[in-house]
Amino acid sequence: MAIISFEHVGKRYGGRFEAVADLNFSIERGEMVFLTGHSGAGKSSVLKLLTCLERPSRGKVVVGGRDLNTLRNSQIPFYRRQIGVVFQDHQLLFDRTVFDNVALPLLIQGIPPQDAARRVRAALDKVGLLYREKALPIELSGGEQQRVGIARAVVNKPALLLADEPTGNLDPQLSADIMRLFEDFNRIGTTVLLASHDLALIARLRHRILRLRQGRLIADEEGA
């Protein structure tokens, strides 16, 4: 069964114009998929629908067999805990150490501290930043900050990892490193959906690509 499926999904932010129009696709468990398209094509909107930041105007989004339209507001936090999200501007808290930033999802879920510490270190180790755990985000480079954001997204071992322009501000070398990180997580079974307009990078990586234009799916290219 697909982990994500969009069925005739439309989204309009007020007004007549549809940011997402009649979108149909599904993603199987364990896939790694790129979502691409020009600015304003609706990539972020798709991810917002998946994280319940926005509700579809029509159609339904099903994740893990659950129609997100049926989620009550009070259930949304518990739903969000099961997916990892990486943001373009990484959304780190600058008054907390790297360690505390990564520990945040576990703190929210009330995981006991010793347990949490073990998992935070494991996640930081995966992104190669264990040695910076005591640093503040401001003391890190852009690429390192992004990796802390990724560690935070995976600390909870989510089955589904979403990322919106995770390499937005990074140079090609760093971008490639970050992508390799996502591939690593995908290799151990995590489903990854990644929005990006870095076409050159995406093309090199040979994964499935969903192309959007004006909110519609114009191509669904299988990876090699």
Partner: peptide, 10 residues
């Protein structure tokens, strides 16, 4: 607040 809400805070 925005960040913790995004990652599942009640």
């Amino acid at each position: 607040i925005e960040v913790v809400t995004l990652i599942g805070a009640t």
